[in-house]
Design a binder for these strands. Structure first.
Lengths: 257, 257
DNA sequence: CGATACGTTGACGGAAATCAACCCCGGTGG
DNA sequence: CCACCGGGGTTGATTTCCGTCAACGTATCG
């Protein structure tokens, strides 16, 4: 399984290391042919590095390109009239959070960085011709946006009906599974470089309460924190606490979920 | 504007009155050509009437057809391990709530009726060939699922960061705008045939609290209830209370929002 | 006419918000 | 080199919004 990767991975790195995470992500939700991988690698990219806490696209914008996250942590969010921020999703390497702008002209939310990010912008026209020449990739991108929607639905459940401990456990489970799909998890540990305030805005809680819940998860021996790296000590226990069922992520590789 | 409809509406009714609501809904988010309308009208439908509180599709199912709601109120929902239901969206005439099953094999949530519904089922294969023959309709359906996703995102904001009064006001605003797009609103009044318990499960509140908030909205002169019909007395006030901005519904007809 | 589901009301309790310190640590500049 | 600064993490005290429980009213329907 690892060996399959080796066949093409060096090629990826030689041409566009930036597309590697995207391909990895797409392969987590479908199989790709060599031709499709090659077409993805030929996508023209405009690279950019963005500092932390910066908007990539804002509410009201009408973007003409999509943003691929090569490295870093980003999020979609809205701010209410009372100035409260609600994060709607986290985005990691391989994600194209504003793929929707292909079909929805005006942004109804903001897309911003949480830490410094390496981004690769892809012109809408290039995306469209890619999908015209490779209809299966078009379907796959549609599938990807549908999975995004499934994540939003689960967040509604999480925020609406789970109390804080389960809520946080669920979020951490989701992050672990998604990060593992792009090979950013080793031994049930991953980098979580966001602040407690960011997590609070994602869960509809206050930063103070997130702090307390985080301590409770540690006290129960479910997770451990060393700096910005989070290690899951009891995966089964964390899943149970968060009532986590990964079905909604619609991954094709189901090992070790 | 009304006259444009008259040109084709009788034809619709003559052939498949059941598709009329779908066409009306699609025309609220994009323009259709006569040919596209005709193609939609030729869709083979399997009609079915379903009583209230019945699942149409359940978590874990792998449907081979999509469900068009001809008449009634349905919802998508999940139930947590503690037995709490969270509704993720309401669906009305013209909606195809499980369009996603075209690209996501297994259902990660339930789709159920809230009141007796008239449904029309469309085979996946028929949808696929429709979209193959009319790529613009394919894009349009993709757009439709993206708008669904935008609604989920707003619900995350609503449930996560707005307190009960604003939360309920926002939900009612959304319902009014969506119902108006399929011509189910007259003079700022519409049928809301769901129970307070249903609304509670949609907003992540208790039914008792929904009752109190509903009274508060009435006391403030924002809405009035006569049986199952809800009349918005102060549209501007309700929008302000719910911090409602209809951008996220991505309607093409923007009058009277 | 009773059964049942839904709406309404009041009393009480609890989960999480808010407020206000304080600590810790890495970065910066004098 | 150390003092200062500021962001983030931590803690305790207090408040508030909303949940829960339990009762009662009301309407619809067989």
């Amino acid at each position: 399984m690892r060996s399959r990767l080796i066949i093409w991975e060096p090629v990826v790195d030689a041409i566009h290391p930036h597309t590697a995470a995207l391909i990895r992500k797409l392969e987590s939700i479908a199989r790709l042919t060599d031709e499709e991988r090659a077409a993805l690698l030929r996508l023209p990219l405009r690279l950019k590095t963005v500092p932390a806490d910066q908007d990539i696209v804002s509410e009201g914008d009408t973007p003409s390109e999509c943003c691929l996250i090569v490295e870093g942590f980003a999020c979609r969010y809205n701010v209410t009239a009372q100035g409260k921020r609600q994060i709607q999703s986290f985005h990691i390497s391989g994600d194209i959070p504003d793929l929707q702008s292909l079909h929805l002209e005006v942004m109804d939310h903001n897309l911003g960085t949480l830490i410094p990010c390496k981004l690769a912008f892809i012109q809408h026209d290039d995306m469209r011709s890619l999908m015209r020449n490779h209809p299966r990739l078009g379907d796959l991108f549609w599938r990807d946006t549908l999975i995004d929607a499934a994540v939003f639905r689960q967040w509604v459940v999480n925020v609406g009906r789970r109390q804080s401990l389960a809520r946080m456990a669920h979020l951490l489970c989701e992050l672990l599974v998604r990060l593992r799909a792009v090979e950013l998890v080793e031994d049930h540990a991953f980098e979580l470089p966001v602040t407690q305030g960011d997590l609070a805005d994602a869960m509809g809680l206050s930063n103070v309460h997130v702090n307390r819940v985080s301590q409770e998860l540690r006290a129960k021996g479910l997770i451990a924190l060393h700096g910005k790296t989070l290690k899951v000590l009891d995966w089964e226990g964390l899943k149970r606490t968060g009532e986590f069922d990964p079905t909604y992520l619609h991954l094709v590789k189901k090992e070790a979920l």
